[in-house]
Structures are given as structure tokens and as C-alpha cells.
Amino acid sequence: MLDLPATAATLEQFVGGDVVLRDAAVLSTRLAREVEQWTLEPLCEIRVGATEYEHRGTGKQLLTVTRFTTAAGRTLSVPYALATQPARGRRLWRAKAPAAPARA
């Protein structure tokens, strides 16, 4: 288990390495509410080194982010550095599509 803001930049070390990431999810603690209210959201992609403008386009500063996309399509971007030019980033992990059912 990793804390997203604290580890967003360190995930870049796994791109192109020998480490294999199997399944990923975001645990939402809803501002430290009771455990029964926590939710686990499966991820479909983790992309490191992408860039975004601060506040999703309302700011003028370009930031380097790690972008987490949930299976439901929600995107969580965690900034960790200033950027000088736009970048799509590198895909660290992507969920495999579910296997098609076998035909009889």
C-alpha cells in the first residue's frame, strides 16, 4: 500500500525495470471516516511523467503528474514537479481486458 502524494514521483523508477505490477486499486478513506465507509476503486491505468496545467487548466503553471485512472473512468492526478513542456507520460501499468467467454 502506497500513499499517493508521497509516492507519485517514485513510481517512475518502475518504468522499464524488472518489477512487475499486478493489479492496482485506490483505497479511498474519505477523510479518515470509519473503516466501513472506505472504498476500493480498481485502476485501469497508471501513467507517470504526464503533464497538466495546475487546477485542470485554470492555472498557468505546467506540472508533471502521475495519473491514475480508475476502472470507472475517474482520473486522479498527483503532481510532483514543475514541467517545461507538455508530455503524455509513460504507461507504467494497464489492466488487462477481461477474457472473452469461450464458445461451445
Rank of each mutant, 00 (worst) to 15 (best):
K60Q: 08
T66Y: 05
G49D: 09
G57P: 01
T58G: 02
E54A: 02
H55F: 03
Y53S: 01
R56C: 05
L76Q: 02
T64S: 10
Q61P: 10
T75W: 01
E54S: 12
V78R: 13
I46S: 02
T75Q: 12
G73H: 07
G73Y: 02
G59M: 07
G73P: 06
T64P: 11
A72D: 10
G73E: 00
T51A: 14
L63F: 05
R47W: 00
E52H: 00
L63M: 11
T58F: 09
G59I: 06
E45Y: 04
A72W: 00
E54Q: 10
T70D: 06
V78S: 14
L62I: 01
I46G: 02
L76D: 06
L76M: 08
S77Y: 05
G59V: 00
G49P: 08
P79C: 11
P79F: 13
Y53R: 06
R67F: 09
A72H: 08
P79H: 14
E52Y: 00
I46N: 03
A71Q: 12
R56D: 09
G49W: 14
L76S: 08
R74S: 11
I46Q: 02
Y53K: 00
P79M: 12
S77M: 07
P79L: 12
V65Q: 03
L76V: 13
A71F: 10
A71P: 04
R67A: 07
R74I: 07
L62K: 10
C44M: 11
G59N: 01
T58E: 14
C44S: 11
A72E: 05
G73I: 05
A71L: 15
R47M: 07
T69W: 10
G73C: 04
G49K: 04
V48E: 13
T64M: 03
L76Y: 03
T64H: 13
R67S: 12
F68G: 03
L62E: 11
Y53M: 09
A72Y: 00
T75V: 15
P79W: 14
